[in-house]
Amino acid sequence: MELSTATLLGAWVSIFLTICILSFLYEDNPVYKLAEHLFLGVSIAVSVVEAYYGTFKPNMLDPVGRAATAVASGSDPGWDAVSVIPLLLCGVLFLKLVPKLSWVARIPIAFLVAMFAGLKLTGEANANLMTQVAESMPNLGQLWIDHGLWDWSADGAGVISGLVLVLGLCACLLHFYFSAPHNRPLRVVSRFGVLMLMFGFGASFGYTVMGRISLAIGRAQELLGLDRSLEQNAVVHPRIATLASIVLLVGVLAVWKLRGGKPESDEATES
């Protein structure tokens, strides 16, 4: 099997950069910081390039170009002419860099914030308020017919779970209700809400940890060549790349330590 030099180099670079980031587990060091800043630069550039080709070009530059061509040829630019307005707003936004005229940049900022505020106002009310409330009210009759009180084979679906869901939700909401003092009856309900929240936070925490660990497993698989075919591994040699990267990194860290290198936090404490 043949792989291009770029693919081969890409595999080795990927492994080397993975090791560089993982070196932070030892302590903050120059190699990690190098990889971190490389990541910063690349990720900002990727965001900008994707924003340009995904939004800027199709929604503004292309219509403006079409309108300009139409005007130049003496025909009607039609709706495309409207795209001059966002172009002007973008131009005004960059006046933020001119101290004397920076206040003018408030106009596009006001437009942007108001647009998203208006959109979120109805969007949140519709999606996260009305829908969530409607979804939370269980159809107990249907639950009884389908699952009875508790159906273990359907992950505990049934009347009990339906009631726990709606009562738990009400209790959690009441826990965050501060317009009335939390005296005895409200305190009991609020306490139930806290227990539900703890349950929920614990489950979310476990879910997040597992997500992160599966990412870590993915990286380990790449380092050990378990995510490639045997033929690809025979060309890329990921384990040799990993070993070489570790040796190189240990060498760099040893030299850094011998030259009196310290993590940034230690330096800050000393100064």
């Binding site: 949140e124 999606a127 992950d155 779970s161 349950f199």
Partner: peptide, 30 residues
């Protein structure tokens, strides 16, 4: 069951609270 029932109840309460907050902030901005 934990993900579908207690976790959903907790998450929904936070979503509803967040939505109320977003609506209030949106109104204040407008």
């Amino acid at each position: 069951w934990i993900m579908d029932v207690p976790n959903t109840a907790a998450r929904r309460s936070i979503f509803i609270g967040g939505a109320l907050g977003a609506i209030a902030t949106g109104l204040r901005v407008i």
